[in-house]
Amino acid sequence: MPAAVTIKTLIVDDQQTMRSLIRTSLHALGITQTREAPDGEEALRNLLSAPVNLVITDFNMPKLDGLGLLRAIRAHGPTSKTAVIMLTGRADRELVQRAVQFGVNNYLVKPFTTQTLKEKIEAVFGPLT
């Protein structure tokens, strides 16, 4: 049962709006250690310099997309055990299946509520305190 405040999170989305929304929701859940990156590449660089517990990433992004990021995270020893929650649109069932192959921990359909986000995170880490 991890304390929310201990979960270091990296938010990856090419849209500032989405990043802000996720951040706001996370903060509301007590997850205050958040960082942000606008694309997979930047996220990877960020992760390599300072690891996190959780990556919440969009799928469709310029440069390196969510799947690419996921694969890179899993392939690199120090980051391979980072939890990854993928953001998807409704139409992305195939994508979710591919993400599962590459080892995603959960998914989150846009748009989402703070409550949904909480459920998804708790499904990965167990109940937040």
Binding site: P2, T6, I7, K8, P51, V52, N53, L54, T79, K81, T82, A83, G103, V104, N105, N106, K120, A123, V124, F125, G126
Partner: peptide
Amino acid sequence: PMTVAIEGDDAP
């Protein structure tokens, strides 16, 4: 979902 455990403050 696949699940993860977190230990203390040290990520990950």
